[in-house]
Design a protein around this nucleic acid. Sequence first.
DNA 1: ATGGCTATTATTGTCGACAATTCGATAATT
DNA 2: AATTATCGAATTGTCGACAATAATAGCCAT
Lengths: 239, 239
Amino acid sequence: MISEKKTGSSKVAAMSTASIANSIYEELERKIVDGDLDAGDRINENAIAEARGISRGPVREACRLLQQAGLIEFKVNRGFFVRVIELQDVFEIYEVRAALFADAGRRLAETITQDQIDELASLQAQMETAHKAGDNDAVYLLNRRFHELTISFVGNQRMTEIYKSLDKELHIWRKRALILDSNVSNSIEEHQLILDALRGGNRTVCASIFLEHSLAGFHRLQRTMPEQTAKFRRSSNLA
Amino acid sequence: MISEKKTGSSKVAAMSTASIANSIYEELERKIVDGDLDAGDRINENAIAEARGISRGPVREACRLLQQAGLIEFKVNRGFFVRVIELQDVFEIYEVRAALFADAGRRLAETITQDQIDELASLQAQMETAHKAGDNDAVYLLNRRFHELTISFVGNQRMTEIYKSLDKELHIWRKRALILDSNVSNSIEEHQLILDALRGGNRTVCASIFLEHSLAGFHRLQRTMPEQTAKFRRSSNLA
DNA sequence: ATGGCTATTATTGTCGACAATTCGATAATT
DNA sequence: AATTATCGAATTGTCGACAATAATAGCCAT
């Protein structure tokens, strides 16, 4: 019997979540999020398959997952392309993200525990350290973690997932636009306000502080590129 | 030349969005949403492929789309299964949906046009008619359209999409749980409040009215099955 | 040169086949 | 009788091949 166990060629495992499609999915997602693949790039099924010694089937399945996740686009008879995130998309994402974050604030006002606040405060301290050390990349990462952790404390998994997926798209765009939010000191100050508001425990105050902070990044963006964002301003009351 | 133009075998069209995978996707989605496929059911790739005279490749691609859309689950070496929506999911979805709807209300307070209000009022009138005629199914459908149309008026496509996808899941569940919200008259009254609030144009008022209405369905649900929802109540401040 | 037409190549769309795994039923063992 | 082992059928996982379509390069006439 023994059967050689040679799924594919050099495939040892594909064990955990398994199925080649899933690992290809994760790999491509990472490449897109990290910027190894640029917006608009075509996904060459053959190249990916051959490079890994597998066939195109699993690659296409992975692409369908990425398609529905919104990271790539599909054009009949043309293939899959890394999605181009327009400024309009960024605008919309900021809006939805802000709505969710504000709601998180309102709920957390009455449900957050001392341990959770401490955890956030710890992240905040790390951010201050990183900021003083001038490590903007670290600050950027810690900032994202602060938001994610905050919203995760609401205990609504769906809300967290949606928030994360929106943030992922925003991250890709920031990377592309080379806007890694240099104005980090504001962000740190605002986080302090968030912590204070959470300690206060007032729903309305929290909601409003959270909303304000969530929009602050967008406001800075507007200041950075006023000509592009101008046309959107009238169509909304974000600013 | 001429080339016969006979993609596949008896394939006439699949022309518009084309690609068999896409049409299978739509077909399965409809079946799941309509309840032709029950939660927990296994998706038999062979059966689907054979019934349509195609191969399993496109079927699997369609399943990957449905998987990422959250309508079906994937288990390695076991296949795809129609997702089972637990009460916990329902609870979470209501929460997120309410957050989005409340935000929509806040924004619409200052941006909605007279034409848009008229459109909503027209739907509202149809609902009243259907209600008087005792056509609860029609009321249910009109109710969903009322909400979708409302949120679409914000002009944020992403927000609309997310809302719709959440509502879709909720719809499946309602169908399964046979809770088609018999208490429709409340809903109609609340819509009147929404229209009034929109005409008033006050952000805070709109946000609060929208939030309240969005939670009303959940409150009714809680009354219907208090024992199941009780355990969730403490973990949140939805009620 | 250059603009359009044709041949060539690259890539996607779909298929059918086979290996690997799981599921179900029957038989064997305690 | 209950549990386990075993075999066979059903189903999934992946592959390689070929047809259809799009992209590219070469050619010709102007």
